[in-house]
Design a protein around this nucleic acid. Sequence first.
DNA 1: ACATATTTTTAGCTTTGTCTAAATATTTTT
DNA 2: AAAAATATTTAGACAAAGCTAAAAATATGT
Lengths: 218, 218
Amino acid sequence: MTLSEEDYIKAIYHLGKGENTTVSTNAVAEKMDTKPSSVTDMVKKLSEKGVANYKPYKGVSLTEYGQKIALALVRKHRLWEVFLVEKLDFSWDEVHEVAEQLEHIKSEKLVDQLDKHLGFPQVDPHGDPIPSKNGEFKKAVKRLLNDVPIGTSGICVGVKDSSVPFLKFLDKNKIALGDSILVMDKEEFDESLHIKIKENDIHISNQIASNLYLKITE
Amino acid sequence: MTLSEEDYIKAIYHLGKGENTTVSTNAVAEKMDTKPSSVTDMVKKLSEKGVANYKPYKGVSLTEYGQKIALALVRKHRLWEVFLVEKLDFSWDEVHEVAEQLEHIKSEKLVDQLDKHLGFPQVDPHGDPIPSKNGEFKKAVKRLLNDVPIGTSGICVGVKDSSVPFLKFLDKNKIALGDSILVMDKEEFDESLHIKIKENDIHISNQIASNLYLKITE
DNA sequence: ACATATTTTTAGCTTTGTCTAAATATTTTT
DNA sequence: AAAAATATTTAGACAAAGCTAAAAATATGT
């Protein structure tokens, strides 16, 4: 497999969790499923191009220019994910691989028009925020469902308890990853939560809620 | 510039005009803006892979398998062009470059869903037919507007007379490349044509019509 | 049909991204 | 603080796609 400069930039960006952290050659290699020596080579080149800061043995980080490129890639990736889910009926978990390809298409007009076509969405189907054209965005916050205040809305992105009985319970109650959730009320009396999930009103126990992760949208 | 196998397949396909004609190494090189020696190398590889038939000094053609690949690329290219024009408000002449990139995205589901999303279009914005999923399609026919029978519809794709006065005339009468045209009636008396062009009814002289090329849709 | 012109291929070199194995730095352990 | 373990880089080789220049095959003109 032959990787592009953009792939390296993305890997460095994501390993740094969006902050401009310095990451190790090995970490990049592992993430990209390649060898550390290949990373060293590429990172030298990125450094020459003014995309990354690289000090031998000390790791690598993105320059401001490199971060801009990374943000533009994230923006494209997430917009395409929205497109695939909203317009082409892809499911939550099918989009990543295709978006991974689409994000490399080069056309500023394409991205801007796509954004418009989708109604300027704020988050992707996984609840992650979409950077604006000039690279601004708030970081996604992930919380357990029973830890957020009334009125919070977000997207169900994971479970703490992944035992079979719990997953079966979720299935039976039509709760799935990718569903959007709004916390409507909290009932102290029986320790339960009143939520709206994908247009349905349901009640769930705090017990259940404390095993569901929510990526907060608003 | 580094070209992909798919680019070579497309070039061979288009030079052969969709028929399975044998084309010369030089022709491919010229079309792709590369050197004949590079073409020889790649064509050998395509031959080994069962995509092309190649006899040294005798030119190259596509195998059935190669044609399938070519048709799939054409299908993708044209569907994306429709998408760009219909959904993202690209103009007729801006789509090619972007579609050239998009056609290389690999996902069968993506293409099928895109086709559905667009309402299974039969032709692209240039009036060229879109192959079906299994590679069937009728070749586009290009005619002068005054040579087609009443009832013919198609897309305006070119001019015979490209003088400035003629182009100005077209502009003034809101006739542009990419417009869809339906021939409604012919008037022998004053040698004119009654056409519907982009929802507008207009009359034009045979003189004018004999300088406009139509790609026939139906 | 022969000489000339053109086309196409071959041989060898370049570049880019990758890999392995050895060498060098850095970090951790004792 | 020295030894051992780990991380990182360097050196050298490989594969893919491309190019130039020379050689070989085919086509053309008289």
